[in-house]
């Protein structure tokens, strides 16, 4: 099986896969626990508009997606403050706006509609050194920020009011979390594709939550589940010539089902 690694594009895909396998659940845990799971979907839809804009303007599409998602992240945070009782409304507004913009841009640039397919479902063949470099830089930024701000992120995710009183800059931390989510999606769309990126942020976390461990153990298990899904999914994609986004997420869903079934068996009742 190791012979597949003699190909440069496969090494690139695996290296990029391992990075996104770490960063997706790392950010995913915080957004799931803040009950903002849909934020990944909203930003993914915006990223489609960003990729299309990048292609139209002739710039690297991932940069286009990143810029537009960072902007959308700022808007979501602003709208969340405006509609405090309906925080999910901010996500719906941005998701619709992103999708409408994407449709318009795709209509304008009909010639690149085939290349956008790789961004929708992910691709192994197209991960080049430039992609790997971008994913690597984004990965370092995300991991370093989470490690640096882990106590603040934990406190704000658990209870904002108490965190604010303890001196945590809650508004800034919330903003940083949304921007990190945008960076995570930007790093992930080349491999997993924008349609399934948020799944990789949510499903390994959902699996890990079933283990009912403390916070940091839940985080570690979520990363492990995610890495297993990425490795398994990539191998399956290579050997069966399938889109890696589908196989990776399929693997993570299988792990969730396995854990749920094991629990049902252990407890002797359906969960």
């Amino acid at each position: 099986m190791l012979e597949i690694f003699q190909y440069g594009f496969i090494r690139h895909a695996f290296m990029a896969g391992l990075i996104i396998g770490i960063i997706c659940p790392l950010i995913g845990l915080f957004i799931v626990l803040k009950r903002l799971s849909m934020i990944g979907d909203a930003l993914s839809h915006v990223s489609l508009a960003g990729v299309a804009a990048g292609m139209l303007l002739g710039i690297y599409p991932v940069y286009g997606a990143l810029i537009l998602m960072l902007l959308a992240g700022l808007i979501i945070e602003r709208l969340r403050n405006t509609y405090q009782q309906y925080a999910e409304l901010a996500i719906a507004v941005v998701l619709s706006s992103g999708m409408s913009l994407a449709v318009i841009l795709l209509s304008v640039g009909q010639s690149f509609n085939t290349s956008i397919f790789t961004y929708l479902f992910g691709s192994i063949l197209t991960v080049n050194k430039h992609d790997l470099f971008t994913i690597g830089i984004l990965g370092i930024i995300i991991v370093a920020t989470v490690v640096f701000l882990r106590k603040e992120l934990f406190f704000v995710t658990f209870e904002e009011e108490a965190a604010r009183l303890a001196g945590v800059p809650v508004t800034l931390i919330n903003l940083i979390l949304i921007l990190l989510t945008a960076c995570t999606i930007a790093a992930t769309i080349r491999i997993v594709g924008m349609l399934l990126t948020s799944s990789l942020m949510v499903i390994p976390v959902a699996t890990s939550l079933q283990l009912k461990k403390g916070f940091y153990h839940t985080l570690i298990f979520a990363v492990l589940f995610s890495l297993l899904a990425v490795i398994g999914g990539l191998i399956l994609a290579i050997y069966l010539n399938l889109a890696p986004g589908g196989t990776i997420v399929f693997f993570s869903v299988l792990m969730l089902l396995f854990i749920l079934l094991m629990q049902a068996k252990l407890l002797g009742r359906p969960q």
Partner: peptide
Amino acid sequence: NIGFPATVEE
């Protein structure tokens, strides 16, 4: 959220 995966100590 009491479903939050955190121990009393944390």
